[in-house]
Nucleic acid binder design. Structure first.
Lengths: 223, 223
DNA sequence: GTCTATATTGAGATAGAC
DNA sequence: GTCTATCTCAATATAGAC
């Protein structure tokens, strides 16, 4: 009960977090509320700055109630990061190499941009964790690295086949990451510099995806 | 005295912070130590997570001593951000438009990359502040916005003269920002994915600058 | 200017009744 | 499962002697 007013920049998804097997309907639902609240607070305050009180408030729970559902603040944070990383692997995954770089990378860029638009808070939590040197997430990143290596190998193949300019494939991936991520992490900055009123509107999103895709494919020399 | 061991990823500059006019030599020197220590702690822990104890330790001071030199943790943080923003304006400034986009943007990219290599912690503090919606730095950003608008106008001129592809000039600046910033904010991630032992070495820096410059100028369609 | 000691607040987490 | 009350600890900041 007592749904809290949505804050600016909030994400609206209420995905069920992982590890809810064999629990009651309500338990899972409450975990979802907590997960969402945690994302909002961690994104703007960081791990240290996030208070369990703030998370509890946003989830519509008392602090004691919250602690009944979670083991600790750190465990909750770890859970959030785990979920984000799982999503990254899907979003940043490659479709079939045979479609060629224009199609495959173009799709990837669009997916990543959509993720930035729809889950900016998740993006920021991840970036914040990276900037600290990934102390919490360290042991979860191996899978992500393997996928990225595979992607780099595919890009290398395309380069060898003359489908795109020769360059360091991993760096090409970095640059795609950097630019698409910018629109999540620096959304405030971007809105301020563009003084755009229509921020987040469908038309503007299409415009940004178009501009970003063109820039990145040209930068990578995709033919 | 009692210089603390340098931690990984530390910045080595000991620039005197602003607002030290009319103070003794020593006072200014101690403020420099505090400033440097603050940068390190804020970068990895954030504003909320940074303890004055940790800052004092890194600066080689007692906590009480630290509080003699600073007004409050928040004021110190504000000071650090102010200094960073001042540096950005210089680094991100344009040289003479007449040199054309290849020279001017190329120089800008190199300067920005060097800043990422040499001041990764400053970069991260700024990004973290942006990701929170810039609550502390908000009223300092007007100057930065003006300069950016001017830069965008110059780029627009170049586009009109056919010196580079037509696109949204502000977005071109965003993308340059995003990619160069990546090498500071995500240095840990980058090192992990590249499993590079020679991280931070002169040769690798030149290599990265070269790759990034080529990618960005191609992306912007600079002729 | 520097030290020891401390006031004060806030937060994470738990106890135990219901 | 939820509540009130509370334990415990850490953190900012200051007091006051030297």
């Amino acid at each position: 009960m007592s749904a809290r007013p949505a804050s600016i920049n909030e994400e609206s998804d209420a995905e069920a977090p992982t590890a809810t097997r064999g629990r009651s309907r309500k338990y899972t639902q409450v975990l979802g509320l907590i997960n969402q609240a945690a994302i909002e607070v961690f994104a703007s305050e960081g791990l240290a700055g996030a208070s369990t009180q703030a998370i509890a408030d946003k989830a519509g729970l008392s602090k004691a109630q919250l602690h009944y559902y979670i083991d600790s603040k750190e465990a909750l944070y770890r859970q959030v990061l785990q979920d984000i990383l799982t999503d990254w692997i899907v979003v940043f995954g490659f479709s079939d190499e045979a479609f060629g770089p224009r199609k495959v990378l173009g799709d990837l860029i669009r997916r990543k941009m959509m993720f930035s638009f729809e889950h900016p808070l998740r993006s920021r939590i991840f970036t914040a964790e990276m900037m600290r040197g990934a102390p919490v997430i360290n042991n979860m990143m191996e899978t992500s690295k393997q996928r990225t290596d595979q992607a780099a190998a595919v890009i290398q193949n395309w380069m060898n086949q003359g489908l795109m300019d020769k360059a360091d494939p991993m760096l090409v991936l970095f640059h795609i990451w950097a630019v698409t991520q910018f629109y999540a992490d620096h959304a405030t900055q971007a809105a301020y510099y563009r003084d755009t009123a229509q921020q987040g509107e469908e038309k503007d999103r299409r415009y940004l995806i178009e501009q970003v895709t063109e820039f990145l494919l040209k930068g990578a020399g995709v033919r």
